[in-house]
Amino acid sequence: MIEFLEPIHVSHYLLVGAVMFVTGAVCMATKRNVLGILMGVELVLNGANINFIAFGSKYLRSDSLGLDGQLIALFVIVLAAAEAAVALAIALNFYNNHTTIDVDEADDLRG
């Protein structure tokens, strides 16, 4: 067990990233609330970020991604913020039009 637990290397970070990613994905799939889905997306993006950081860390790998990992993580964060703004706007719009935030009600296009 102790061999699994330490020393910490990239795989452990990947594990955390994977858990976050899957949680986020399941969250997106199961939540009926627009905001819940939005939070799922955030979790997924953050899971990916952890992987980037892990691959970019000089502590974990001698031949790391280096700066690229962090730069890409930054891009992801910024894009996530942008995405959240748009998603929130969509959610509000949806709420204004349907007076609900239940995505299952969004079936206007259904024949």
């Binding site: 950081i53 970019g56 962090q70």
Partner: peptide
């Protein structure tokens, strides 16, 4: 975790 991995700024 990011701090731990040395990515302070991120």
């Amino acid at each position: 975790l990011f701090f731990l991995a040395g990515a302070e700024f991120v």
